[in-house]
Design a protein around this nucleic acid. Structure first.
Lengths: 210, 210
DNA sequence: ATGTAACCGGAGGATGAACCTCCGTCTAGT
DNA sequence: ACTAGACGGAGGTTCATCCTCCGGTTACAT
C-alpha cells in the first residue's frame, strides 16, 4: 500500500468516527470525505460501502481502547488510579461515543469484531473488579453504570462549543463522576441498583410535566 | 380557541421538543407533525415557521422549569433535597436537553424569552447558593457544572433504548452525579476548577490516540 | 531522471426526503 | 342544525446525498 493511500485511510477513519458521533449512523459520507480532506471517490475505493466503513471504525476503536486498558493497568499500581486513567483514555479515543451510535447497524457475530469486543470488555472488566476488590469503588456501582456514564461524557454537547472546550469539560466531568463512584463511609445504596427506589420516588414528587 | 386546536398545539409542542432533542435543530417538521399525530398543515397553521415553533418550545421549557424550581424550594426544607428534587424535575421536563440544541437559532434578545430565561436562571441559582451556604455541596462545584451535567444526563443515549429505560437510567445517573457533588471530608479541589491540573495530566498519560 | 502502476478528485445523473401551499372535508360549540 | 374554524394530505419544487466513471496526478522503484 502506498504511503499516501495509508495516510488517507487513517484520515478517513478518524473523520468517520467524529462525524458518526456528531451526526449519527446515517451521516453523509460526503461530509466524512470532506472532513478528512479527501475526495468522495477515495472513501468508496477504500471502504466499499457504509457498512464496511462502520465496521472499520468500530474495530479500530475496540482495539485502541483495549490497549488503553492494558496500559492503564500496567502503569498504575493503585486500582482507582488505573480506573481513572482508563476513563480519561476512553474519552480521548471516543470509543464510548462512537460504538453505541453504530451498534445497531453492525454484525456483532462477525468474528473479527466479536474477538475485539470480548478482548476489550474483559480487560476493562478486570479494571473495575480490581477497584471493587480493593474497596475503592462503591459496591453498588456496576460495569454498566460506568459504561453508560462514559457514553454520556463522550457525546458532544449540543451547540457551537469549540472542540478543546468540549474535551476539557468532558475530562472535568469525568472527575466529578469518579468522585461519585468512590467508596465513602456513608455508603448508602444507590436508588435503582437495589431496593431503595422509594427514596428516589419521594424526591421526584414535583410539579407535573406540562 | 377551539378545544381540539388547543390540544393539538400542546401535542405539537411536546412532539417538537422530543424530536428536536433527538434530531437536532434541523429536524424534519413533517416528523414532528407525524409524532404529534396531526397533519403537517396543522403545524404550519399554528406556528407559522420553524423559528416560531422553536421559540414556543423553549419558552414553554423555561416556564416549566422555573415552576419546578420554585416547587422544589417550597417543598424541601433541606437544601440538598431541594436541589435533588429540582434535578430530577428538570430531567423529566427535558429542559436541559432541548434548550442547548436550539440555543444558537434563537433570538435571545427577544423580550418574552429573555424574561423567562432570567426568571428561571435566578431561581435555580438560588437553589444552588442555598446548598452551598448550608455546606451540602462541594465548594468547587459551580452552577455551570450542574447545568452541563444536566445537559449530559438529559440527552438521549444513542441506539434503540426504550424511553422508560432511558428515563430510569437518567435518574439513576443523576443520583450518581449528586453523590459526586456532595461535600465530603476529604474535599480536594476538582481539576479544572482551580489549580490542580497537574494531577489530572499525570493520570491522563496513556497510550497515544491512534 | 523517468516510467508506470496505483492513486486521486470531482463532475453529474438518479434518487428520495423535506418544504410549504392549496383546497375539499369534517366537527366543536352555539 | 348550522357554520366558522379547524383539519389532513396531495403534490410541485427544491436540494442534499448517493455512487460511478474517467482524465489527471503522484509515489516509488529502477
Amino acid at each position: 500500500m502506498r504511503a499516501d493511500a495509508l495516510r488517507n485511510s487513517e484520515l478517513l477513519l478518524q473523520a468517520a468516527r467524529d462525524v458518526f458521533v456528531e451526526r449519527g449512523p446515517d451521516a453523509s459520507l460526503e461530509e466524512i470525505a470532506r472532513r478528512a480532506g479527501v475526495g468522495i471517490a477515495t472513501l468508496y475505493r477504500r471502504f466499499g460501502d457504509r457498512q464496511a466503513l462502520m465496521h472499520a471504525v468500530v474495530h479500530a476503536a475496540l482495539v485502541a481502547s483495549a490497549e488503553a486498558a492494558e496500559h492503564a493497568q500496567r502503569e498504575h499500581a493503585d486500582p482507582f488510579d488505573a480506573l481513572t486513567a482508563y476513563v480519561h483514555a476512553v474519552l480521548d479515543l471516543r470509543t464510548s461515543a462512537v460504538i453505541p451510535v453504530l451498534l445497531d447497524r453492525l454484525d456483532l457475530a462477525e468474528p473479527e469484531l466479536d474477538t475485539a469486543r470480548r478482548r476489550s470488555a474483559s480487560i476493562a472488566d478486570r479494571l473495575l473488579t480490581a477497584a471493587h476488590r480493593a474497596g475503592a469503588v462503591r459496591k453498588d456501582v456496576t460495569f454498566g453504570d460506568i459504561g453508560l456514564m462514559l457514553v454520556r461524557l463522550s457525546r458532544p454537547l449540543p451547540g457551537q462549543i469549540p472542540p478543546e472546550t468540549q474535551d476539557a469539560l468532558a475530562h472535568r466531568h469525568a472527575e466529578l463522576l469518579l468522585r461519585g463512584l468512590r467508596a465513602v463511609p456513608s455508603d448508602e445504596p444507590l436508588p435503582g441498583s437495589g431496593l431503595e427506589l422509594a427514596q428516589l420516588r419521594r424526591l421526584r414528587r414535583h410539579a407535573p410535566t406540562t
